[in-house]
């Protein structure tokens, strides 16, 4: 039960952050990626704020022997740069540039009832499902379930 509360608190904070930062707006994301056009550098400030708070906060939290609601921390340990990482990140960037949505803002926008958001999320979930089913066969590298580094 406590873990569910932990997830809810983090999700709420994340959603408020996406909304206030303007990242929930696909047009603003494209404005950031369009460095050769009418560039809107706002998203660099989102990353700056996010990375700064996370870097300081993580260091503080990781001095603890364990989190509050779990017996241990679950952190990515891989450091190798492999083909699935490069191919996956390349594809993700292409999709991001096409639609102006990455996974967080797309989910956060679901409540506003736009067909484009709903369609994007449905297609994204399908893409995730297909990747989980086929990545092992394609790259003979195990894609770890539900883990992002």
């Amino acid at each position: 039960m406590a873990r569910i509360l932990g997830g809810l608190i983090a999700g709420l904070l994340f959603g408020v952050g996406l909304s206030i930062s303007g990242m929930i707006n696909p047009a603003k994301v494209i404005g950031f990626l369009d460095i050769f056009g009418a560039w809107d550098p706002s998203l660099a400030f989102v990353m700056l704020g996010g990375v700064a708070v996370t870097a300081i906060g993580y260091r503080t939290v990781l001095r603890r022997s364990q989190p509050l609601f779990e017996p241990g921390f679950i952190l990515p340990t891989r450091r190798d740069i492999d083909l699935p990482l490069l191919a996956g990140a390349s594809l993700f960037g292409i999709g991001w540039g096409l639609g102006g949505y990455c996974p967080g803002p797309a989910l956060a926008g679901l409540g506003f009832g736009n067909l484009e958001t709903l369609g994007f999320v449905a297609a994204m979930v399908l893409g995730m499902f297909v990747a989980r089913q086929s990545a092992n066969a394609l790259f003979s590298t195990k894609v770890k379930a539900g883990r992002s580094s």
């Binding site: 699935p84 594809l91 993700f92 297609a123």
Partner: peptide, 19 residues
């Protein structure tokens, strides 16, 4: 948007993460 969503979903699972 449908095409973009599929590519984002596939790419983020393959690359183990997003933004």
């Amino acid at each position: 948007m449908l095409l973009a969503g599929f590519i984002v979903g596939f790419g983020t699972v393959l690359g183990n993460g997003c933004t």
